[in-house]
């Protein structure tokens, strides 16, 4: 579904050039859920943005559903296949567009017909009742907003969802609801996920395999089973697992 080979992403020009991602390699199979974990600045979100066409300064190969992409230009077919959900549901919805306007715009851009019924179905899919259709973002809680953002991503019936920390701005009980929703949607629509998170436990819950990143490089690709069994091969991964486990008094 997705292949990334020898991906380099940089910002700026020498001598100030920053290499945000260095020779990243991984592939995600159809229907798989793949996680990218690492600390801030490790380049995990940058990979997502390069795939989505939000960054043009990259080299290497990105192939989505058998088709290579270039630069920051993507055609309609790409956006029909790939959609992204962002971290902050407070920032990713237009404050003066109602849920109805957000979803109908997305549907129209995807060239869908029967928009009225599709909005209804999208709202049902993400567990929002009909009563939410004409609300504005400020009338929604964080979890409800993220549901709207997910509904918007689903509008074009994509096959690959890029999830950039979809629950890190939410309370843990709301996080549980959204993670359950994402798991259900993946099963129902046979979606492929590429999920970025700094939270190992969230990735462990959602994904089949994961890549651990540090300083722009992928240090290890492992299965979640290996993660759970503590079978990390790299020191950095072990360090990350240990630190995520919480605080130990010294």
């Amino acid at each position: 579904m997705l292949t990334v080979e020898n991906l380099d992403v940089w910002f700026g020009f020498p001598p100030d050039r920053v290499d945000a991602v260095r020779s990243a390699d991984f592939s995600v199979a159809q229907g798989e859920s793949f996680g990218l974990v690492g600390e801030s600045g490790s380049g995990k979100s940058t990979i997502l943005r390069a795939i989505a066409g939000l960054i043009d300064s990259w080299s290497g190969r990105i192939e989505v559903a058998g088709r290579s992409v270039t630069g920051d230009r993507r055609d309609r077919a790409f956006y029909k296949t790939v959609q992204m959900v962002f971290q902050d549901p407070y920032a990713s919805l237009h404050p003066r567009h109602s849920v109805d306007a957000v979803l109908s715009e997305a549907l129209r851009l995807q060239g869908m017909d029967d928009i009225d019924n599709r909005i209804q179905r999208l709202l049902d899919d993400v567990g929002l009742g009909r009563g939410f259709r004409f609300r504005y973002p400020h009338q929604l809680s964080g979890g409800q907003r993220q549901r709207v953002a997910i509904a918007r991503a689903l509008a074009g019936e994509p096959r690959l969802l890029l999830l950039d920390e979809p629950t890190s701005a939410l309370d843990v009980s709301v996080q549980a609801e959204i993670l359950n929703l994402l798991a259900d949607l993946r099963a129902e629509h046979r979606l492929t996920y590429l999920m970025v998170s700094h939270d190992l436990a969230v990735v462990g819950h959602m994904c089949d395999r994961l890549a651990v990143m540090q300083h722009g490089r992928i240090v290890e690709v492992m299965t979640v089973d290996a993660l759970r069994q503590g079978a990390a091969r790299q020191d950095y991964t072990r360090h990350l697992i240990h630190a995520s486990a919480g605080y130990e008094r010294v």
């Binding site: 843990v172 009980s173 996080q175 549980a176 359950n180 436990a201 462990g204 819950h205 759970r228």
Partner: peptide
Amino acid sequence: LLNSLPRLDAPVDRLPV
């Protein structure tokens, strides 16, 4: 609150809400 957190050492299929 305690149950709704995913845990590496105790995997579950669905998180209790």
